[in-house]
Design a protein around this nucleic acid. Structure first.
Lengths: 248, 248
DNA sequence: GAGTGGTCTAGACCACTTG
DNA sequence: AAGTGGTCTAGACCACTCC
């Protein structure tokens, strides 16, 4: 049996987590089977229950086990066939890849009407809509086109560089009476429309990744919609699920 | 100041989390600003430091704050412009939408060679490759085509229904000497090839969502590759970021 | 050296499940 | 009634940051 080394630089809860992870991945503990109870694990490895629990919650986060009050903690089905895609803001995403981002404002307009898809999402016009559209660049090359629609009262000027440095939800919070607290996003593939294709420098009809984002207030009214079209050859999402870094 | 109700059904750490979340979303605590120290929060709300920490770790998980040892805990930039897409196995995903899944095995073949893209991913042929290809259905309608390549020794028969009920990583673990412990997946858009388009009942060239999954052993050798093509009108990913459910 | 977050302990009470 | 996980407390030591 592996023991906990209390003089190690890696803390006990993490050591125990790698021990248990090894048993699960190695098949010693099979899906559906219960782990020893928290008290038993504490006795076995000479750790307090709090520490055991911290370890188990780490494994649960990673989808390896799940706890059921009153019953026990059980090994989950293999989690390698899942994927987790974290989509950051464009600037952040590209910075992570070491690329310089730029942007070009294509349109800013005050509109009285919303496009049909926005109405279908439950958004209302009210005092009017501010629409803007930007081309997003990475290392000088076009990567995405974004279209934004937000509820807006005329006469509250927005500086152009706000589009650049503030998140959409911030802009709405600052320039309207609405406070977005919820965001729902949908990701699919689609054919590039003529308009977007032109700015992306691709042929119309080329596949693009489409991200649609809807921001809601606390009472679940949509107050902002963003639609992104990404060139499929310059933007993709990556998920990496790996075992815990084991150490002494 | 909001107080903690110790007789409530919602536990104190959760109550405190909603209190702090409200202050952050409402702008009372602005991005970059420090929260009160854990000890101070404990004194202020009459909770132990452990409980305060549990609350803070909940907010940190949700991206609202981040802690820095020795410095303090700080409010993060607005997180509404992020998105989190969790991609489950096909069966699980469709079950969540209340759909019945089915599948049709298109090909199973023992191959001596790998396609070029697989070689580029660092996969080696060795004793040979098992290739199979399935059509995935939801409520009788074609949704995706998957192609799988795994290192494989001849003469270890696989039952057809294993493809149906076991995850790819399980099949590899059972039928080869390799144990996948790491999975890397990439998501993009692409044009449907003739082959896939036919089975998906769409025109060749139609945009599809492409997911490519590579399974690695502990020493980071690829042992299995899966490629999925999803009809964009029948498959999309959804992310929903909402505030904590506040209660008494 | 004072203050911060990171970890750990030992013990307690609760809600839930099972025999 | 016994055992399980869920929550909380009070106190301790450590590593880190900043003055």
């Amino acid at each position: 049996m592996d023991r906990i080394n209390k003089n190690s630089f890696t803390p006990p809860f993490y050591q125990l987590a790698t021990i248990l992870e090894k048993k699960i991945l190695g098949g010693e503990l099979k899906p559906g089977e219960p782990l020893p109870s928290e008290n038993d694990l504490g006795r076995e490895y000479e750790l307090s229950r709090t520490t055991v629990r911290k370890c188990l919650s780490l494994l649960a986060e990673r989808g390896l086990i799940s706890a059921q009050q009153g019953r026990g903690t059980f090994v989950s089905r293999p989690s390698l066939d899942r994927a987790l895609f974290v989509m950051e803001e464009f600037n952040v995403h590209m910075a992570q890849e070491g690329k310089q981002t730029g942007q070009r404002l294509i349109h800013v307009r005050f509109r009285k009407e919303l496009p049909e898809f926005a109405l279908n999402l439950g958004m209302t016009t009210d005092d009017g809509i501010l629409y803007y559209c930007r081309l997003l660049l990475a290392d000088e090359e076009p990567v995405a086109v974004e279209h934004k629609y937000m509820r807006y009262k005329k006469g509250r000027p927005i500086l152009e560089n706000e589009f650049q440095y503030k998140a959409f939800s911030e802009i709405i919070a600052i320039h309207t009476d609405f406070l977005p607290v919820r965001s729902q996003a949908t990701l699919t593939a689609e054919s590039a429309a003529d308009f977007d294709a032109r700015f992306l420098q691709i042929a119309a009809g080329t596949p693009v990744l489409k991200l649609q984002q809807v921001l809601y207030t606390g009472d679940n009214k949509p107050v902002g919609i963003g639609v992104f079209y990404y060139r499929h050859d310059r933007y993709s999402l990556v998920s990496d699920i790996q075992p815990l870094k084991g150490e002494r």
